[in-house]
Nucleic acid binder design. Structure first.
Lengths: 240, 240
DNA sequence: CGGGACGTTGACGTTAATCAACTACCGTGG
DNA sequence: CCACGGTAGTTGATTAACGTCAACGTCCCG
């Protein structure tokens, strides 16, 4: 499959172009598979025989308490990998958020490749580092930000580099998903988004697409400044 | 220094016996150093020239918001390592909690050792995996547990394997430190601990030492079961 | 066109933050 | 050795934030 990759037509979206997952796809035999929305892929505490890479779409990784509270550990976008590290078992379940394509690699094969191929080692270290950085951000906002600030930081994280450009950003997950990731209720998420709109900080084209109008104000809020009250955006400060 | 290690007297506590940090100390030149309580070691966003291992004592890794809220990312016990991964800069500050001994390695030297020494690679992967597992637990309790449950889970995490034995566990950090780690106020931590005592789940010998009397009840609470009300411990169920 | 899932908004209740008083402890210096 | 002051911890009263409950609107798919 690797040898044939150059013959594949460009529209066959079963490969990632760059980043750690691309390296893994280059070096290892992977099995690709598509998932429907909400389709289950990993069961928490199940034996980790495979590593999973997201080729397109988005997964959510989550755990549930005995009494039914769900925490979404992270949303895994295209290019992301689940199951790296020296683990015997998965520590969270995973489901597709949107229609997604994933590739699975044998955990043993990855281990073997890491012993011999420096590029694979680099890729794994890269992916682990990225995950740790993302977790750092998530942990901080859960630990010391109020609900509005959490939502603001989440929107900025989702927007990424596009945040400053006024580009339309997709929020593919539901309000409940966002809530279970941010440690609040979906009503609280909904209210925060409404307030941001009224304050002129963002604009929603529909419930699942937004643009950032006032990047500076949103950032100040997300970083945890001043008594967490939303000020109305001043038009001329936009895109600071 | 490595060559001389066998001549060192046993009471010289500048080495860790086992685990990832022990491997790093074996393979790399490290500079040891002692820290007084509250002494600063790492500044957030500073260039990462060194990796830091905790030989004895405990550090806290933390970030502070512009308006002064502090979040303690994690407490780093003896054997723990700070600064692993492909990072240009530290993502958090660090200070000693108690009088501590640390060892610092050059980041470049570590990188070189990882290229040539499989044992070092294993050790780094090990340490990163441990950190991710710890972060998973921390994130979950910040994301979906109430304050009492957070404190219960924290006490269990601190107790570790000793939790089931009724051994005395030291809580070397202050209530404020615990609070800034759990995303609550120090009053809330204090109240939770008092409630656990009144419920017969733990016993405090003094403000910084406790034993777990009813491991089962504390675990049920920490895992997020039933409406998060504290029931009084039933004596015969102890140590379940 | 109808039903169900999702999202928004409002009213109300609960949790935990805030404000405040008080106590215990520890190190320092008289 | 005790007096003193500062820090840390506990506990209570009050308030603010957010969860819960409920009603309603909207969109999508059958």
């Amino acid at each position: 499959m690797t040898a044939l990759s150059s013959f594949r037509p460009a529209y066959a979206q079963d490969r990632i172009e760059a980043g750690p997952l691309a390296v893994l796809q280059q070096a290892l035999q992977g099995v690709t598979q598509t998932l429907k929305p909400d389709q289950h892929v990993i069961m928490e505490a199940s034996e980790r025989r495979t590593i999973i890479g997201v080729v397109s779409g988005m997964l959510r990784s989550f755990r549930v308490t005995p009494d039914g509270r769900r925490h979404i550990t992270r949303f895994v976008d295209a290019g992301g990998v689940i199951g790296l590290g020296k683990l015997a078992a998965f520590r969270a379940s995973a489901e597709a958020v949107t229609r997604s394509a994933i590739v699975t690699f044998s955990a043993k094969a990855l281990e073997a490749a890491m012993a011999t191929d420096p590029a694979v080692r680099e890729a794994v270290l890269d992916a682990l580092t990225k995950e740790l950085i993302q977790r750092d951000r998530i942990q901080f906002r859960l630990g010391r930000l109020w609900s509005d600030e959490r939502v603001a930081d989440f929107l900025l994280e989702r927007a990424g580099a596009r945040g400053r450009t006024g580009a339309v950003v997709a929020l593919e997950m539901s309000r409940a998903d966002i809530a279970d990731h941010l440690g609040v209720t979906f009503e609280t998420v909904s209210r925060a988004i409404s307030r941001f709109q009224r304050a002129g900080m963002i604009a929603m084209t529909d419930a699942h697409h937004f643009t950032i109008l006032h990047h500076g104000a949103l950032t100040v809020l997300a970083e945890g400044d001043g008594g967490h009250a939303i000020q109305h955006a001043h038009p001329c400060e936009a895109a600071s």
